[in-house]
């Protein structure tokens, strides 16, 4: 059972590491979590980013945050990636599988996954 005693053990283990982990915020992944996003499936997408960034140990320079309605509800789930000095990349109609590819190619590899971006959507 995950008890508070176990949480205390976790705290003691983490104490020395905390200072190193203050985010530099090089990359920011923002997931739209308003009603439109959630209804379209944003929760598994956000969860996929949180889990993958945590597991890859990238929390030092990548932050995952939530935002409200971006105004393009028909393209939800929408994910924006901000990187200092670069243009914002907007991914649309995301899924948790697409999120994995974005992590690998864009977040780790530095190459945006063009086929998932808003510019590639046929009007």
């Amino acid at each position: 059972m995950k008890t508070l005693a176990e949480l205390a053990a976790l705290r003691d283990k983490m104490k020395d590491k905390v200072a190193l982990r203050e985010g530099t915020g090089e990359k920011r992944i923002v997931v739209g979590m308003a009603t439109c996003g959630i209804a379209a499936g944003a929760r598994p997408v956000l969860n996929a980013f949180v889990v993958a960034i945590n597991e890859a140990g990238l929390t030092g320079n990548v932050t995952v945050t939530q935002t409200g309605c971006i105004g393009i509800c028909q393209y939800e789930p929408v994910v924006e990636v901000y990187e200092s000095g670069k243009e914002k990349v907007t991914y649309v109609k995301m899924t948790s599988e697409k999120a994995q590819k974005v992590i690998e190619e864009h977040i780790k590899g530095g190459r945006p996954v063009k086929e998932y971006t808003i510019g590639e959507i046929k009007h």
Binding site: L4, E6, L7, L10, R11, V18, V50, N54, G57
Partner: peptide, 15 residues
């Protein structure tokens, strides 16, 4: 219990 350790630390979220 956690004191200064933030709730959004990966280990805490996992817990």
């Amino acid at each position: 219990v956690l004191g200064e350790i933030p709730l959004d630390s990966p280990e805490v979220i996992e817990w």
